[in-house]
Each structure stands twice: as structure tokens, then as C-alpha cells.
Write a protein that binds this DNA or RNA. Sequence first.
DNA 1: TTTTTTGGTAAGCCACAACTTACCGTATTC
DNA 2: GAATACGGTAAGTTGTGGCTTACCAAAAAA
Lengths: 107, 107
Amino acid sequence: MAYQKIFTAMADPTRRIVLEKLKGKPRTVADIANDMPVSRPAVSQHLKVLQEAGLVNVEAIGTRRFYSLRREGIEKLRKYLDGFWEDVVASYAAKVFKRKNADGGTE
Amino acid sequence: MAYQKIFTAMADPTRRIVLEKLKGKPRTVADIANDMPVSRPAVSQHLKVLQEAGLVNVEAIGTRRFYSLRREGIEKLRKYLDGFWEDVVASYAAKVFKRKNADGGTE
DNA sequence: TTTTTTGGTAAGCCACAACTTACCGTATTC
DNA sequence: GAATACGGTAAGTTGTGGCTTACCAAAAAA
């Protein structure tokens, strides 16, 4: 199950701040680390985790590395969460089906 | 931000197994702990975390306690994830708007 | 009323995750 | 070429999260 890395990555508050900083546009590490309560290497380590979880992309330009949101990763999480409704719909449909066939569809 | 508890709760693989076991119907603690690689008290502790995150409900019947999925909690997470697309849509709309007003709407 | 079932809580252990500082390599710029 | 900017990685520390066993309270069954 590859959801593990995504959940783990998003469970950390600092990493979520990083992700939210990338909402608007790609940013460099120094840019991201700016105004953050943790050191630049810490941010670097968080970015590694986010990258391995498939939540960010990197593009190196000169000595700078631009990190950007990778929304496919987030989409994966959404899909997983959707799974918690499938059964509700299924059981409801089954109930309706059962009733329709039990009383001849009077309801 | 109340998302923290939900993310933390869902980041643990054992807790996700518990949640998935509750998909179909409410279950007792012993029922949930059955076939799990961890002890019954461990499951009890996990259920506490899930409850505090708003992901499960409890109903006590006699000495047994039936735990059930609380989908509003999961829905909250979905809403948060949705936030990562809003900006995309907004910036796209802004771009289209800008272009329409720049060249008189030829595209 | 004793015994059994059910499950929450306390205490203690241990692994790991999130930091820090120190260091290094590689592009720019002077 | 020397100095500076940028950022990844190593090593070490520390708090905490998940587990275990032991214990306790309450309801049901005997």
C-alpha cells in the first residue's frame, strides 16, 4: 500500500505548511525556509520526504532547486478517502433492491 | 487547525486497518482486535485516538462498546485536500479573464 | 453472590521521527 | 581563481508514539 508514505508525509504540520506554501507557485528551498520556525536543512529533509511521497516535484536551475506541488499525490489520497463511502452507497442500493423485490416495488 | 488530529490518526497503518474494518458495520473492540497483529489494549488505545480525531463513534450496550465510522471526520480531510486545487482554478480563471480583456476575447 | 465477559487505563520499554550543527559539492559572480 | 550563494547529507540528541503486561471497574451469566 503506497498510501502510507502520503499519509505519513501529510501528518506532519511543518510539511503541510511547506505544501501550502507551494500552492501558488514553485519555490526554492531558501524561499520556503524563510519565515519558518525550523532551520533550512530541516526544510530540506521535509522536502525529501514529500518528494518520496510523490507530493512535490523538483526542477534544478543553476544552484537553485524549484519545488512545486504534485497534485496527483494528493489526488491519490482523495481516492482512498472515497473508498469509505462506496460501501454506504452499495449497502443502500442493496437495501432498496431488496425491498423492491420483496413487496413488488410499491415503494 | 483541527486537521492535525485527523491526519495523525490516519497516518498509522494499524488505525487505518481499524477504520477499514468499520466500513461495513459497527463492531466491538474484541471483534476489531480479532485477527489483528496487536493486543486488545493496543486497539483500545487506537480507538481512543480515532475517537478524539472525530473519525469514530461509540455506543455502549451492556459491557460491550460498538464502534462505528464517523464519515464527517473523513469528509473534513477531503475538504482540506480540495483546498489544494482552488488556487489552480482561480489562477486559470484569472488568466483567461486577463486574456479576454487584453485582446478583446479572440481566444 | 460468585464467576465470566468486556474493555478502559497505568506504567514502562523502545524505536523512530524531527530537529540541530557541521560539513561538503557545485554553480554563479566578482 | 577566490569568494559567495544555494542546498543536500552526516552525525548526534531528544521527545514522543505505539506496543506490552498488569490491573481495575462494570455488566451479564452461573
